[in-house]
């Protein structure tokens, strides 16, 4: 599926490069952008602020990329977002997670069992609770999290997880197609 196209289950088309609105053009400078950008380009005034937020929340920061990808991939799997699971499987591998960890985060094995460090086990359990339960989080889950992470880390990881949940529902509701590049990489990794 090309980023400029649409899949049978897509709720919206992706804005092609020759129709990119003025505010969206920087995102099309390298050709067809990601499906998320291609969808957001329908409302160009939301594109810049949304991508700035997503970039700040999920991008490089004082919390390691490995921890962020653990949170992102687990939240996406709990929310059942095909697009985000596929896309962040590739990102997680690039950030050094091994296949067993990725499979566990995707729900193919008990998620916490794949991680040896207390911090990572606490994070996986906390994200699972955050993404999968309504209402307040379980006290034990919260306690394990606060025992392993500083307050700034908890705040940042909360932003990571909740921004991911927003994207999970956005991508799922719109039926965004996984990009050709992601499909190709998953096939090459034997994870397609």
């Amino acid at each position: 599926m090309s980023a400029a196209g649409t899949s049978a289950s897509s709720a919206v088309s992706l804005v092609p490069p020759d129709q990119a609105p003025l505010l969206a053009r920087p995102y099309y400078a390298g050709g067809a952008p990601s499906p998320i950008v291609g969808a957001l380009a329908h409302v160009p005034e939301l594109l810049g602020v949304t991508m700035a937020f997503v970039g700040a929340a999920l991008g490089e920061s004082f919390v390691s990329a490995r921890l962020k990808e653990i949170a992102i991939l687990r939240a996406s799997a709990v929310l059942g977002c095909h697009y985000c699971v596929q896309t962040h499987t590739v990102v997680a591998l690039d950030e050094g997670l091994d296949r067993a960890e990725v499979r566990a985060l995707c729900g193919e094995e008990p998620a916490q069992d794949a991680f040896g460090e207390d911090r990572e086990r606490a994070l996986v359990g906390w994200v699972q609770e955050l993404a999968g339960q309504r209402g307040p989080l379980d006290d034990d889950v919260q306690r394990r999290m606060t025992g392993c992470f500083s307050e700034p880390e908890i705040v940042e990881l909360t932003v990571v997880a909740t921004a991911t949940i927003m994207l999970n529902r956005f991508c799922t509701a719109l039926g965004l197609p996984v990009s050709d590049a992601t499909h190709a990489r998953l096939r090459a990794e034997g994870l397609a």
């Binding site: 020759d18 990119a20 609105p21 003025l22 380009a41 409302v43 160009p44």
Partner: peptide, 10 residues
């Protein structure tokens, strides 16, 4: 509708 000269939906 062509959107290449669209500014905002709002």
């Amino acid at each position: 509708l062509d959107t290449d000269l669209l500014v905002t939906r709002t």
